[in-house]
Amino acid sequence: MAINPASGSGVGQLRWVNLRSSSLKSETGKNSSEVSGSTSAEFSALLQERTLQSGDKDSATALNPLGDSSSLSVLLWQQLGGTSDSYNAISGEITETKPTDYEELIQTASTKYGVPVDLIKAVIDTESSFNPNVVSSAGAKGLMQLMDGTANGLGVSDPFDPAQSIDGGVRYLSYQLKRFDGQEKMALAAYNAGPGRVNKLGVNSDQELMEKLSQLPEETQAYILKIERARAEYGV
């Protein structure tokens, strides 16, 4: 199915409302569940306090410029150091997902579109930290952070559905790999910043791309390096 070129340039933008930061143990020696429970209670108390403080519409708007309660929750969760893969802005619940939850879907998409499993996992990890309900400030949604126009072009009716997001995202990534003759870094740059930005560099290989990496947005520069680091964790 044809992709909307205009919307494709926005795929995977990573201007997150909240940042990913995970740790198995805190500095005090508490295990992760103890830390999570303590932080959750603190978050709930702070959310209630901030909501009460914003007694009128103007103050509420100042506190929550995004204009809805879920956005307020995300902003407060960020202030407490919460992670994108542990706070569900849709349900308001603190949940966690992990790569193994989507193993079958990833394996299926890998076989279907010819994209390596470790690359798919690295993209999902970097895009959403395996949180299927994440929405970026740019409007990208779901595990593989598809923009609405691109999702529609890929036949993805519900970007929050893991099966649709993974299939659509991997399909789109496979298009970029084919477009750039299998050059992975070029394909990843296109996934994040749009193929138009990559084409403007006039490069034909990953090596040439890295030589001109500084000409891409800082977000895309960091994105390529994050994918590389994450992929090392999932490599066989």
Rank of each mutant, 00 (worst) to 15 (best):
A41Y: 07
A138T: 14
E233D: 07
G168Q: 01
V35A: 07
L76G: 10
L154Q: 01
E218G: 12
L201D: 07
P159Q: 00
V236E: 04
Q48T: 11
S22E: 15
S110L: 01
I124M: 05
Y223N: 03
Q53C: 06
L76T: 15
F160L: 01
G235Y: 03
W16E: 14
N199S: 10
A2T: 14
D68K: 03
V35S: 00
Y234S: 00
N4A: 06
P217I: 09
T126P: 00
Q53Y: 14
L213V: 04
S157T: 15
Q107F: 09
D148M: 04
G92P: 03
V115T: 11
Q176D: 09
K121N: 10
A89I: 01
K141M: 03
G153I: 08
D58C: 09
S54K: 02
Q215M: 13
Q215V: 06
P217E: 10
D181I: 13
S26D: 15
G202L: 02
L143T: 08
A109G: 07
R197K: 15
G155T: 05
E228Y: 06
I3F: 08
E211F: 14
E218D: 09
T39P: 01
E49C: 00
G139H: 03
G149R: 09
G235N: 02
V35W: 12
L143F: 01
K185A: 13
K141F: 03
Y234P: 03
W16F: 15
L72Q: 11
V74A: 14
T28H: 12
N199C: 03
R179P: 04
E184P: 06
Q176M: 15
I3A: 08
V236G: 01
K98S: 12
L19N: 13
V135P: 10
R15V: 06
S33I: 15
F130C: 05
N4M: 02
T28V: 08
D167L: 05
M186D: 10
L177S: 04
S9A: 14
V198C: 09
S137P: 08
N131C: 09
M186P: 15
D161T: 03
E184I: 15
S9V: 11
L177D: 08
E127M: 06
A2W: 15
G142L: 02
N64Y: 06
R197P: 04
T97F: 14
Y87D: 05
R197Q: 07
G114L: 07
N18M: 14
K212G: 10
T100G: 01
F160A: 04
I224T: 06
F43L: 10
L14C: 09
G182M: 06
L146P: 01
I94S: 10
D56E: 02
K178V: 06
P195N: 05
E228T: 10
S214C: 00
